[in-house]
Design a protein around this nucleic acid. Structure first.
Lengths: 332, 332
DNA sequence: CTGTTAGCGCGTTCAA
DNA sequence: TTGAACGCGCTAACAG
């Protein structure tokens, strides 16, 4: 059995209350020598504070939870870094839970373990909650914020890139290199708001250039490597598109490898622009140009959103187009 | 303020104890209609159980914590999957903490947040604890187990691959393809036990083939992409080695890309064997042959180690050599 | 089957 | 500056 403040009190010959005070370092509420006695007793007993008990009485917690979509992409780590750093600055601790992949039951499990214990706030990383689970989360009366995902209902707090701009700027960068047949691959433009926004930006960029996208250019998917491969397979061995904007780095690599399997060379035969801009882009050959998102900043902003009391409107983090090696200029 | 069982009790016109019983589903300790009343009251109040309070009295927890070395490699996810699945089967929940990269202070923070609250057990994924932090962990009297790391002191509980075999079999696979100048890259063979074992296995395999490794063949490092690059840079543009065993998938890709920057083609000019065998191996071109580890199984075994009471000896999970495209046969 | 009592480990009154 | 008493939300023991 772990030692408690009572044990320390007995050993030090003081009351539990006093022990509590010196351990909480409520300075000037105790004398130096009692403090010393208590400290000594605590160390000899190997005392470990029971934070759960303390939180029970103070009714407040110092941990924030990040629920992560166990993702087919790989940017979550960057967001988490931002969360950790920002939390640390505020003296908060971070616990991470995996919520499976769009599985409502796993989502519920993660939510429950978090909600059922004192937590200062909840961050949800690209987790698309089922309606039921969203209600459950809201009923819990705990501050929360979605990261790297957006919703039509503006009252939900979320922080993410401007996904319309992601689609728009990514496509524009390709158009600027002379491409006129541009594909959009492995973006979930059917069900999810994020994907719809990207599609709209993509379409707008093309329209402004006087191009009406052929439906075959748009190959929706779930942002995964496999989705990227499937999209490229749909484009075929002699693709009509000369450039592809892919929904994630992973998806872009799927496109890349499938293109290679077709005997196509990137970027000579096909240009690829990834979305995300994680280190994966620099791992493959050729290195992938990308619309890069500010994942670290999302994490930081998420923590701030949680800890500043007042409800704030949805926030946007910046994006930048990074040129690497997977896009080439073509004569139009 | 969240509703408590007292509130429910008042609303349902029963005692708190009764509420507790039906909510904990202590069947046959209450009648059907009181149960109904209680359930109704609970839902109208939007009751959320305070598990922390419950754990305080029952003195036992249903969560296990995984502390992860925020890793320059990428296998942690696979271990975590195994942990999640195994934990789920036992009705346990999993929380994950990041412990930075060999930073004692961050390690301590993670340990503290975990130890200071009721946790059933702690899993440490390739976390090399400082001596001080190890003492701290042991003093906490919480079951723990290291994963994907090994120690000389056999009394520490750990589960990992047989790293001597990793080095031995990886090298043998290269020797079997006719290579006689084989490098070992980005393995931490200087400080860490894991790395020393791999080095020993590597050396033994060479010796058995009648080869004495040139010191220049061994380029230690921290398993990272950058370490892989550095190792390859050390081998040079016209490397003496014809094959390299790299400490991780990431490291292998570092070797691969640096070789390419040197104008070398893999596997024609240089063969590469990765260690780990995650999906990264199939993302790059050529696909990387690997000594693949059973990370998922490590996670499962870790949970079992925690939940079976008796102290068990260190455990080993299997490895397999997977042939892909990065090793070629050469005439000897 | 149900209510009363007690107490988990801690922080915080209120007196002294 | 310190101690006694109380209560956070919950479960367990014991009556009834």
């Amino acid at each position: 059995m772990a030692a408690t403040i009572k044990d320390i009190a007995k050993l030090a010959g003081v009351s539990p209350a006093t022990v509590s005070r010196v351990l909480a370092n409520k300075t000037a509420f105790f004398s130096a020598d009692t403090a010393a006695k208590v400290q000594a007793a605590a160390t000899t007993l190997g005392y470990q504070k029971n934070t759960a008990a303390a939180e029970l009485v103070t009714q407040q917690s110092h941990v924030i939870a990040a629920i992560v979509n166990s993702t087919k992409t790989n940017f979550a780590n960057h967001i988490i870094e931002g969360i950790q750093d920002a939390a640390y600055r505020q003296g908060l601790n971070v616990i991470i839970l995996y919520a499976g992949d769009a599985d409502p039951e796993q989502q519920r499990r993660a939510l429950t373990t978090v909600i059922e214990r004192p937590v200062r706030g909840i961050l949800l990383l690209s987790v698309d909650l089922s309606a039921e689970n969203l209600t459950y989360l809201q009923a819990a009366q705990i501050p929360y914020c979605f990261l790297s995902i957006s919703f039509e209902e503006d009252q939900l707090p979320f922080i993410t890139s401007d996904d319309w701009q992601v689609g728009y700027q990514g496509t524009q960068a390709l158009l600027a290199q002379g491409h006129r047949q541009v594909g959009l691959a492995a973006v979930d433009s059917v069900h999810a708001h994020t994907g719809k926004l990207r599609l709209a930006g993509y379409t707008q960029a093309l329209m402004e250039a006087g191009i009406t996208p052929d439906p075959a250019w748009i190959q929706p998917g779930d942002y995964s490597y496999v989705a990227g491969q499937a999209a490229m397979r749909a484009y075929g061995q002699a693709p009509q598109v000369t450039a592809v904007l892919a929904g994630s780095d992973m998806a872009a690599i799927g496109v890349l490898n499938q293109a290679r399997d077709f005997g196509l060379t990137v970027p000579q035969d096909l240009s690829i622009m990834a979305i995300d801009g994680t280190e994966l882009c620099e791992l493959v050959q050729p290195q992938l140009s990308s619309v890069s998102q500010s994942f670290y900043d999302m994490g930081v902003a998420g923590v701030e959103q949680l800890t500043t009391a007042q409800q704030q409107p949805p926030k946007i983090t910046p994006i930048t187009v990074v040129t690497r090696e997977s896009v080439r200029f073509i004569e139009s």
